[in-house]
Measured scan of single mutants.
Amino acid sequence: KKKYVIKVYFEDTGKEVEIEAESKEEALEAAKRLAEELGLKIKKVEIYP
């Protein structure tokens, strides 16, 4: 089964997080949740198959 690796870059902090997920949708949801939890804004998202 294919996994996606999503790199999320946050504004202000210069922080980046990698998330593995089964689908792009799932990964983007996780990225949004994470940003909310951390109180950060997402600057850029890169998706690698």
Score class of each variant (00 low, 15 high):
residue 1 K to I: 14
residue 1 K to P: 12
residue 1 K to F: 02
residue 1 K to V: 12
residue 1 K to Q: 12
residue 2 K to G: 13
residue 2 K to N: 13
residue 3 K to W: 10
residue 3 K to Y: 05
residue 3 K to I: 08
residue 3 K to Q: 12
residue 3 K to T: 07
residue 3 K to C: 03
residue 3 K to R: 06
residue 3 K to S: 15
residue 4 Y to S: 09
residue 5 V to K: 11
residue 5 V to N: 04
residue 5 V to G: 05
residue 6 I to W: 06
residue 6 I to N: 00
residue 6 I to V: 07
residue 6 I to P: 00
residue 7 K to A: 06
residue 7 K to W: 05
residue 7 K to S: 04
residue 7 K to I: 11
residue 8 V to P: 00
residue 8 V to G: 00
residue 8 V to R: 00
residue 9 Y to S: 08
residue 10 F to T: 01
residue 10 F to K: 00
residue 10 F to E: 00
residue 10 F to L: 05
residue 11 E to Q: 15
residue 11 E to K: 06
residue 11 E to C: 04
residue 11 E to Y: 07
residue 11 E to G: 07
residue 11 E to N: 10
residue 12 D to S: 08
residue 12 D to W: 11
residue 12 D to K: 13
residue 12 D to C: 07
residue 13 T to H: 09
residue 13 T to F: 11
residue 13 T to C: 01
residue 14 G to K: 10
residue 14 G to A: 10
residue 14 G to V: 15
residue 15 K to P: 08
residue 15 K to F: 13
residue 15 K to V: 05
residue 16 E to V: 05
residue 16 E to F: 15
residue 16 E to Y: 13
residue 16 E to D: 15
residue 16 E to R: 05
residue 17 V to Y: 07
residue 17 V to Q: 02
residue 17 V to F: 11
residue 18 E to H: 09
residue 18 E to Y: 04
residue 18 E to P: 02
residue 18 E to T: 09
residue 19 I to T: 03
residue 20 E to P: 08
residue 20 E to Y: 12
residue 20 E to G: 10
residue 20 E to R: 08
residue 21 A to N: 02
residue 21 A to P: 00
residue 22 E to I: 04
residue 22 E to W: 06
residue 23 S to G: 03
residue 24 K to I: 15
residue 24 K to V: 15
residue 24 K to G: 13
residue 24 K to N: 15
residue 24 K to C: 15
residue 25 E to S: 03
residue 25 E to P: 05
residue 26 E to S: 07
residue 26 E to R: 06
residue 26 E to L: 11
residue 27 A to P: 00
residue 27 A to Q: 00
residue 27 A to W: 02
residue 28 L to W: 15
residue 28 L to F: 07
residue 28 L to P: 01
residue 29 E to L: 15
residue 29 E to Y: 09
residue 29 E to K: 13
residue 29 E to F: 12
residue 29 E to D: 13
residue 29 E to I: 06
residue 30 A to H: 15
residue 30 A to P: 00
residue 30 A to D: 06
residue 30 A to N: 12
residue 30 A to T: 10
residue 31 A to H: 00
residue 31 A to W: 02
residue 31 A to C: 09
residue 31 A to N: 00
residue 31 A to I: 07
residue 31 A to G: 05
residue 32 K to D: 08
residue 32 K to N: 15
residue 32 K to P: 01
residue 34 L to F: 15
residue 34 L to C: 02
residue 35 A to T: 03
residue 35 A to L: 05
residue 35 A to N: 01
residue 36 E to L: 12
residue 36 E to W: 13
residue 37 E to H: 09
residue 37 E to R: 04
residue 38 L to A: 14
residue 39 G to H: 08
residue 39 G to N: 11
residue 39 G to R: 05
residue 40 L to T: 10
residue 40 L to Q: 08
residue 41 K to Q: 07
residue 41 K to C: 10
residue 42 I to N: 00
residue 42 I to Q: 01
residue 42 I to C: 02
residue 43 K to W: 08
residue 43 K to E: 14
residue 43 K to A: 15
residue 43 K to H: 13
residue 44 K to M: 12
residue 44 K to L: 09
residue 44 K to C: 05
residue 44 K to E: 10
residue 45 V to N: 01
residue 45 V to G: 01
residue 45 V to F: 07
residue 46 E to Q: 10
residue 46 E to P: 00
residue 47 I to H: 10
residue 47 I to V: 06
residue 47 I to P: 04
residue 48 Y to C: 10
residue 48 Y to V: 12
residue 48 Y to F: 15
residue 49 P to E: 15
residue 49 P to Q: 12
residue 49 P to H: 15
